[in-house]
Design a protein around this nucleic acid. Structure first.
Lengths: 229, 229
DNA sequence: TGAACATTTCGATCATGATCGAAGCGTTGC
DNA sequence: GCAACGCTTCGATCATGATCGAAATGTTCA
């Protein structure tokens, strides 16, 4: 049986190292990072990180771009992010349901970005609030933004028109691995996250994918969205 | 940075062995298989397969069920199939686009089942035909069955009503890793595949996930669906 | 109970690849 | 050109886990 299995194993082997998994996880926010930064999050020396990064680029999971004396690494395509999303969803399933999962960092669990949209308690709370106000229908496989939802986002100053040539979905669910429930993704999810960053409702922490919810953000998410956070 | 990265690496390591990848790939059709059969497709001895299977069950990627003196293994949840689907999509991307990908088995490429729906050239051709007849809208992220599509499937004898308590999506795309284009999945996709099996348009090959298109099937797919195969 | 068969467990061997120190390369700025 | 800096390459070492023969376990059927 000649199948894709060998390629599958080869791909998995690339992710199967904790250093490389840390690097990929760090890059899940879609931004580029320097080799040094990635060495730091992966807790390895720069030499080792360089070795890992070369492998990831060679297999086309990452793209590299030179910026002066530094090299910036980022995920090669959204397909890679989508794959990692799916793997994290399964990875978050505790095979021994008896013991609680204590290994999720509190800040990550609270609020983070998932490629380009909000995730964690914040992402799920915002999604739930929009759902309760009739702005949104969402289950594990598909989502729909209602007329009320479009109006709501428009009033917030969000332009939902798709960029030319974009085939990206307006509204789709993304299974949150820390909350184990779907949150809003797609163009609408990205727009909400962009808005939150622009209005300083959330701030990216200097390291890692977690974000800090500002005082203004707490007020905005509660009053404007009706989110319970 | 305490994240899910270690669990991600651990999960990937489980898939990173060619034997286990072969086993998982074999089980992607959603059916259960005996340990011996899985040892055969993985090209390892029964002892080795048993060792691999124990690991996959321990990590809750597989479920095992005793049937007399045999043990039947199957994917633990559809989430696992979905994850593997995403990984195969990335695994099928050739990192060196110059050389052609000769490693996909011709029968697999021609027609196979992907968990519960049709894939390969057949799956994509049926999807394209339904699309061209206005039965279907489908892009990489979402799909919709039109009124015409519902009527078309109803006339074929397909009951599209969702089983009670099923939250499964009627119509969704699944990226075909051999064709690199989306094909029809979801309840509608599964119903079409079921129909094809029942009417003997396709037959499962005794080993592997590929299916054989019968003479009647060729006629049916061409005349009833308008598929170019 | 005993024979046949599927599967698992145990034990020893072997191959792969992750790691980091040291050294080399390439870019920037003085 | 030279120094500083970020990053990569090389080389040697070490740990992990895949493999299979042999033997044990467990199930069915007579």
């Amino acid at each position: 049986m000649q199948t894709i299995a060998p390629e599958l194993a080869e791909l998995a082997a690339l992710i199967a190292d904790s250093g490389r998994a840390g690097i990929l996880s760090r890059l899940m926010d879609g931004r580029a990072q320097t080799a040094s930064e990635l060495a730091r999050v992966a807790s390895v020396t720069p030499q080792t990180a360089s070795w890992h990064l070369a492998r990831l680029v060679e297999r086309a999971l990452l793209k590299v771009e030179r910026r002066g004396p530094r090299r910036l690494y980022r995920l090669a395509t959204p397909l890679v992010a989508q794959m990692l999303e799916g793997m994290m969803t399964v990875a978050a399933i505790d095979p021994h349901p008896s013991r609680p999962p204590p290994w999720i960092d509190a800040e990550m669990r609270r609020a983070r970005t998932c490629y380009d949209h909000l995730a964690g308690e914040l992402g799920v709370a915002v999604t739930d609030a929009m759902r309760e106000h009739g702005h949104l229908h969402l289950d594990q496989e598909a989502g729909e933004l209602t007329a009320s939802g479009r109006a709501f986002l428009r009033d917030l100053g969000i332009d939902l028109r798709a960029p030319a040539r974009s085939r990206r979905l307006l509204c789709r669910p993304c299974l949150d691995w820390s909350e184990r429930r779907p949150h809003l993704a797609g163009r609408a999810g990205a727009a909400v996250a962009d808005l939150a960053l622009q209005r300083d409702w959330i701030r990216r922490r200097p390291q890692g994918r977690s974000v800090e919810i500002t005082e203004a953000g707490l007020v905005a998410f509660r009053d404007l969205f009706g989110a319970r956070i």
